[in-house]
Design a protein around this nucleic acid. Sequence first.
DNA 1: GATGAATGAGACTTCATTCAT
DNA 2: AATGAATGAAGTCTCATTCAT
Lengths: 199, 199, 199, 199
Amino acid sequence: MRARHEREREFRRESIIEATEQLLNEKTFESITMDDIAMRSDFSKASIYQYFKNKEELIIAVFARILRTECHLIEERCLLETDPIQAMRNYIKIQFESIHRNPWSPKVIATFPFRDYHAENCLSDLYNQKKKLITGIIQRGQTEGIFIISDLDIFTNMLLSASVGFANYFSTRMSSDIQSPEIEMFISTIIKGITKGEQ
Amino acid sequence: MRARHEREREFRRESIIEATEQLLNEKTFESITMDDIAMRSDFSKASIYQYFKNKEELIIAVFARILRTECHLIEERCLLETDPIQAMRNYIKIQFESIHRNPWSPKVIATFPFRDYHAENCLSDLYNQKKKLITGIIQRGQTEGIFIISDLDIFTNMLLSASVGFANYFSTRMSSDIQSPEIEMFISTIIKGITKGEQ
Amino acid sequence: MRARHEREREFRRESIIEATEQLLNEKTFESITMDDIAMRSDFSKASIYQYFKNKEELIIAVFARILRTECHLIEERCLLETDPIQAMRNYIKIQFESIHRNPWSPKVIATFPFRDYHAENCLSDLYNQKKKLITGIIQRGQTEGIFIISDLDIFTNMLLSASVGFANYFSTRMSSDIQSPEIEMFISTIIKGITKGEQ
Amino acid sequence: MRARHEREREFRRESIIEATEQLLNEKTFESITMDDIAMRSDFSKASIYQYFKNKEELIIAVFARILRTECHLIEERCLLETDPIQAMRNYIKIQFESIHRNPWSPKVIATFPFRDYHAENCLSDLYNQKKKLITGIIQRGQTEGIFIISDLDIFTNMLLSASVGFANYFSTRMSSDIQSPEIEMFISTIIKGITKGEQ
DNA sequence: GATGAATGAGACTTCATTCAT
DNA sequence: AATGAATGAAGTCTCATTCAT
């Protein structure tokens, strides 16, 4: 049957992605060579090209996986949450956890050529999906009169970028304890900043 | 006279730095070659090595210049400002302007090997100097009972990283108009988040 | 089968070594470029780096081969020889022949950084092996009361260096006829110098 | 007066030569850069080219000085000596001392392109002069019936090359004490080898 | 499908030498 | 005469990618 074939192929793709993720914890994507990936994934260099057209497609796959995971988590822990403030708290925490798991991700995104990032590859779709989820949370908060009113798109972008910015900072320089009060402080500041009135 | 020689040398160093900055608006530092820099700066490749020991020293010089400029601006527009809130607003604006001028800077910092960045080269000194200036602003705000109380260092790091994070996002994806209301919104959110009580 | 792969790889390594040896007959190792070697060995420059980590490893391999050959020859033509004088004659001849085949070898050794030569690479081992063989010959001569008595190590070094010194001289400046009477004269002088009494 | 001018120029040439000699004690001639020499000699790199046409001429000057010194010493300590054996002993000692003073000299000669060495530059003249002096010693020894009879030129070359070969070996690997018994052994062996009969 | 081998293109860096002051 | 500056030419090495088995 073709199905098993397909499943095995997918499995091998994943091993390569995982090897790459491991390596990204150790050095820049630019400085990781196909040899490194081959070594780590226990495939030959040439074999990798049977699963990914080139280095770029590989990194895209890596990020797609992360974004997909983030989306799942947001759906699970934010969309079902009735309190918008708590939903927002949860999103920020998810963002932290994600960057905590893959501290290199903001760095790599930062260097990833933008044109491609926003164009033909699946990344932009996933990225928009994630944004849409966050937008949903904000919208609910605004509708319920809890969050301040302002342009939705801008609001979302602001939250996303500030969260990622701080999480990145946090993950590279401070204790990597994800429960630390520093994070709570950031969350509170943001929540305070975006909620109406006294809170 | 020695002095003129010295001045001329410094001037040529600056041209190379400027050429590099220009190129950084077009592509990653990693993907910029010494040939590119030579071409753009109208020096021969070999000449560049008379002014910078290697590519790394060059990028360090580029960043040192940016940090120095930022420090000067903060001193001018924040330290003299008596109102802490206004001082803080000004700092965030300066950060935006800086990233607006050099949109690549967060990206490049992101890929710059961190060990070195925080160690023996002059960058760490400059970076700490900048942090100290911001800490000063916050401290004043806290002393005057305007800003919320919390660990100074964490407070500073949070502000710095969130601002850079958002400014980076802003500069690469939205209209590059520095007067846009989006920025005002970010600033307000942050200010609201860090000031005590009603405001 | 793995074995054939291995053999083929070894064969290709040898071609590169041979190309290098050829070139060494034409110019200094320092002045031979990887391009030269690539050209001569009919590999691409990059390919060479699959067989030798760098230029230094290549030269080490070249010398290892020579030393190995010398050791084999000494074993064959000296150790089996019962007459110590004849054994010694044979060694000196072997040394001449070797330098006659690879006239550049003393020159290259001369410029080769000594630390490495006497340290972690396989060369020092081979070199000591060769010395041990010569020491063996001398020792036998001394035991049998034919050679003069003196410190073994010094004796060995003297013979080695004087032979190499003269062979080098001979090969670079005189007719390269290996049968020439000049060589016979050197051999006689040395033999006369190291044998006891009348001879 | 022109004379002082000339003398000063000669003096500056000598400083550069001396700087080069110093450096040769530390690294290969090929690896010494004109910058090194400039630094060490306290001239600017460009200035050196006013005293030597190029790097090659400089190294030639270095060797010319050494050969000239050797010739002087041979004249002083060998030609005046009436006993040929003692004269020969003295020559070998001079050779040792010379190489002891400039241990790099055989190495550098070894790598020096031979064509030039034997052609238009002054080195060949000096070299021949040195050879002629040694030939003189041998000739006297033969005339007086002390040394064995054989072709003069070959005899000379053999002595020269074997002495240089061993002295080189000695200077790089053993204790650098010039009085050591090892040297005496080499000298005795050679003397024994070239003198007639019982000795 | 898997992989050992091969490589073109290109990066950084060095250095002897010349030029202009 | 002296020298800071400039550079062409060259060298070593790396890497993503393709090919042949």
